[in-house]
C-alpha cells in the first residue's frame, strides 16, 4: 500500500456489520510506517465499509489532510521524522479530528502523554483489528453525539462564563479576548458537562458516565488527564485553579457563574 492510497469497503460501498450506514462512508486515515500494520487495518476497516487512506509519516499526514476530509486518524507513535506525539499535538492545535494513538512501546507514560496531547483514545500494539474497529466506532460516535445525558440537546446554545463563551451547536470555545480555542471532542464534551452543572461537585465516576468515557476507556486517570488538558485550554492555573477546582476525595467542581442563551428554535 502506498502513501495516500485509498481503500473503500467492497460491495459498492455497502457496509458490513454496523459500520457507517448513512451517506458517504467515514474516512479513516492511518498514519504508520509499517506496511503490514497499514494493510491489516486498512483491509479490516474497508471490509466494514469505511473509506481508508494511508500516510507513512507527518508529511504524508498533512498531504492527505490538505486533500481530503478525514473523520478519524489512527496515528502510530514511532514514525520516521516527526514523532507521533508531536504530530498529535500539532494536529490538535488546528483541528478537532478524533485521534486514536497506536503504539508498540507499551509504556504507560506514552498512554498518558498521548491522551494529554489531545488523543481521544490509545491502543497498544499488538492489537486485534476487531478491538480497533470497536474503538473507531466508539470514538466516532462520541465525537458526533451531542452531550446527551450531560445536556439535553434542547439546551444547546451559548454558555458564557468568566468572559469565555462556549457555543454548543458549533462546538467552539472563545477566549475573553475573542480568540477561537480549539477543543478535542472529549474536551468539548467535558466542558459542556461542567458548564451545564456549575458549582456542583461531580465525581470522576459521574464525569465518566456523563461523558460516556466508561465505555471506551476504563482508565482511572482518564478524567484527571482530560481535566488537566481542559484547564490548559482555559488558562486555569493547575496549582490554584479558579474555574475547575479539585475537591479532594470527591471530584471536581466548575466554579463560575454560567449564563446560558438557548439556541434559537429550528425552522
Amino acid at each position: 500500500m502506498t502513501l495516500g492510497e485509498s481503500v473503500t469497503g467492497k460491495g459498492g460501498g455497502e457496509p458490513r456489520g454496523d459500520g457507517p450506514v448513512m451517506g458517504s462512508p467515514d474516512h479513516i486515515l492511518i498514519v504508520d510506517d509499517d506496511p503490514d500494520i497499514c494493510k491489516l487495518i486498512s483491509n479490516y476497516l474497508a471490509k466494514q465499509g469505511f473509506r481508508v487512506s494511508i500516510a507513512n509519516d507527518g508529511r504524508g499526514l498533512r498531504g492527505v489532510l490538505d486533500r481530503s476530509h478525514i473523520d478519524l486518524i489512527v496515528l502510530d507513535l514511532m514514525l520516521p521524522g516527526e514523532d507521533g506525539l508531536v504530530l498529535c499535538r500539532n494536529l490538535r492545535s488546528r483541528s478537532n479530528i478524533p485521534v486514536i494513538i497506536l503504539s508498540a512501546r507499551g509504556e504507560e507514560m506514552d498512554r498518558i502523554i498521548g491522551l494529554e496531547m489531545g488523543a481521544d483514545d490509545y491502543l497498544g500494539k499488538p492489537f486485534h483489528p476487531r478491538e480497533l474497529l470497536a474503538r473507531v466506532k466508539s470514538v466516532l460516535r462520541r465525537a458526533r453525539t451531542l452531550p446527551g445525558g450531560a445536556v439535553d440537546p434542547e439546551d444547546l446554545g451559548v454558555y458564557h462564563f468568566s468572559g469565555w463563551s462556549l457555543d454548543g451547536p458549533s462546538r467552539q470555545l472563545f477566549s475573553p479576548e475573542g480568540e477561537l480555542v480549539t477543543l478535542s471532542g472529549s474536551e468539548f464534551q467535558l466542558l459542556m458537562i461542567f458548564v451545564s452543572h456549575p458549582n456542583r461537585v461531580l465525581s470522576r465516576d459521574q464525569l465518566l458516565d456523563l461523558s460516556h468515557g466508561r465505555e471506551i476507556e476504563p482508565f482511572d486517570r482518564t478524567i484527571d488527564m482530560q481535566v488537566s488538558r481542559l484547564r490548559r485550554r482555559l488558562r486555569d492555573d493547575p496549582r490554584n485553579p479558579a474555574l475547575i477546582k479539585t475537591v479532594r476525595s470527591a471530584g471536581y467542581v466548575f466554579s463560575a457563574r454560567v449564563e446560558h442563551k438557548a439556541a434559537p428554535p429550528q425552522e
Binding site: D34, D36, I37, A104, H128
Partner: peptide
Amino acid sequence: RMKGSGAG
C-alpha cells in the same frame, strides 16, 4: 515491527 503486528 514484528512485535507490533504478529499477534494482530
